[in-house]
Amino acid sequence: MRLEHALEDWQQAVGTGPRDEPLGNWNHTRGVARIVRTFHELLALLVSLWLGITAR
C-alpha cells in the first residue's frame, strides 16, 4: 500500500512540478523528499529480507 501511494505521488510530482505559489518550490521539494524516503525505507526492507533468505 505504501509503495502504491508513493508511486502515485511520484507520478504527480514529476508530472506537474512545483505549483506557482509562494511556497511552491518548498512544498514540491518536501514532497519529493518524502517520496524518496519511502522508497529508501522499502528498498532497505527488501534488501534485509533478501539477505535473510540468502544467508540460510
Rank of each mutant, 00 (worst) to 15 (best):
L3R: 11
H5L: 07
A6E: 06
A6K: 09
L7P: 01
L7W: 13
E8N: 07
E8M: 09
D9R: 14
Q11M: 14
Q11D: 11
Q12L: 13
Q12T: 13
A13Q: 13
A13H: 14
V14N: 10
G15C: 03
T16M: 14
G17W: 03
G17F: 06
P18G: 04
P22A: 00
P22M: 00
P22E: 02
L23C: 09
L23F: 08
G24P: 12
W26I: 02
N27C: 07
N27H: 02
T29M: 05
R30Y: 05
V32I: 14
V32H: 08
V32N: 06
A33C: 10
I35R: 01
I35Y: 02
T38M: 10
T38G: 07
H40C: 05
E41P: 09
E41Q: 09
E41D: 15
L42W: 08
L43R: 09
L43F: 02
A44L: 06
L45C: 02
L45F: 13
L45S: 13
L46N: 02
L46H: 03
S48T: 08
W50S: 10
L51W: 03
L51T: 08
L51E: 13
L51S: 02
G52H: 03
I53P: 02
T54D: 13
A55C: 00
A55D: 11
R56Q: 01
R56E: 05
R56C: 00
